[in-house]
Design a protein around this nucleic acid. Sequence first.
DNA 1: CTCTTTCGCTGACTAGAGTCAGCGACCGTG
DNA 2: CACGGTCGCTGACTCTAGTCAGCGAAAGAG
Lengths: 288, 288
Amino acid sequence: MHQDDGITATLRRFNRTYTQRIGALEESFLGTGRPLGVSRVLYEIGLHGAGVGVLRDRLDLDSGYLSRVLSRLEQDGLVRLRPDPGDGRRRLAELTRSGRQAWHELESRSEDLATRLVDPLSPRQRERLADALATADLLVRAATVALREVPDSDPAVRDAAGRYVAELARRFPRGFALDALDTGRYVLATSDGEPVALGGLRELADPGTAEIKRMWVHPAWRGAGLGSRMLRHLETMAAAAGHDRVVLDTNGTLVEAIAMYERAGYHRVERYNDNPYAELFFAKTLHS
Amino acid sequence: MHQDDGITATLRRFNRTYTQRIGALEESFLGTGRPLGVSRVLYEIGLHGAGVGVLRDRLDLDSGYLSRVLSRLEQDGLVRLRPDPGDGRRRLAELTRSGRQAWHELESRSEDLATRLVDPLSPRQRERLADALATADLLVRAATVALREVPDSDPAVRDAAGRYVAELARRFPRGFALDALDTGRYVLATSDGEPVALGGLRELADPGTAEIKRMWVHPAWRGAGLGSRMLRHLETMAAAAGHDRVVLDTNGTLVEAIAMYERAGYHRVERYNDNPYAELFFAKTLHS
DNA sequence: CTCTTTCGCTGACTAGAGTCAGCGACCGTG
DNA sequence: CACGGTCGCTGACTCTAGTCAGCGAAAGAG
């Protein structure tokens, strides 16, 4: 019924099976007397409400289209729109009492469908399915993490760098303190808009060499290969900028990171700076 | 990032991840200058051609709608329609040279997308993803197998029974022969229209007892729990028909089946018929 | 040879989803 | 306070997907 004929074939086969049988979960939003698009907006507003612009971004809808959907929901008494107190141009959408009821209806309809799908399976099979889907979920998310260079003024960089510092302070025996953010080029990895990894690249006095700084991966994402991807990305950037060697320093307590650097082809070198927190120094020659 | 909070939550979470990121595989049919529906029909016709009725069944389309889509494809020079030589009412659709070219384009577009998706993953991760998706595929297929009672005249019953007989003939030391199909109630399990399991229920002289016959599961589907599901289904049918006990006979060579009967609560009983092929006899009391 | 089905096609619709240009209210900057 | 830009809304569209009733040719049953 299935033979191992490559990852893309497996993926495409799964895609077919999936859209035919579970895709219906999506259309479970239908059958509530409302068109799918309207229900999706209703669901996305959620119990806590949401700004119109946020909805537009999250659902990737045209401004005019969303506006019409919202006014329909308002007419139906499911949604209340009020101006954003902080910015008179914006509007906030929130569910009315019957809107919340409709939201719960969508929720339970989707839950029912999921239950009905797994119902024919034995407990053991359900467990296997849950494991397989959780694994697939993690890997698909990891695969679709987007890396992009951002200016060091980007709030997400400050946020990620702050978490980096906080973690080092917790892990380093004598704590860790850092005042200003290094200038340099930063690469931010995001998933669903959330920062999940950060990496920085800085020029050194020696023009041929770049230094990798501030490598950080969100704790929940460790082991998903993000660190290596970030490293490769930074190396490519360094090579493109004309460097033929990258260096980095780290601390002996960061054992996972050290293992990753070694797997990625980095080798130990002598101390090249006077960073008091650094104990180990690595370098890698780039083959362009 | 993910906590174990039940199979339905995992399924729904995956569903969200999936539709956002892999769902695009489906829409890869877009961007070819043709609407999605038209491309789907084109793809489904395939390189070997297909009858119009077959397409209607497979894609679950309205007769009139499909007809229009096909004539559009014919106008565009991608499809040729000719009458079925065996039945003048039917028509066969097959791809022209440029139709085949368009088909390959869809194929490679879909392949590209799949490749691009798994590209950021390491070989080890790709393997894990392939495993997870293959497992999920199997289980989702198993979960969505449909069991339905069919008349014993149904060609699918004859087909499945034929495979059953052929397999027993191969596995039994002295072969197996069976002339007519027993009358009785048959339950057929199908996946994508293909028969994947069969089971029969027959009344015995003793009115309280029903006999389960012709239990067969497609070789590719064994281990997916279909046998147990079929058994449960037949038991429910027997109970609904007023029986409080089911019996069955089997042969010592069918070790997997015997293990399944025992797991399902069947216990050994004395021989109750003169079936020369039967060596072992089982019974189960139904608690209604 | 009739009568009934089946098969695919045509015409006439509808709802849903989305696009695009432009508008008025409002914000932040210089 | 002028001005460019942002935000959401409105009107006028388009395209896709699909439904439904009915029709004529062909096949199968009696």
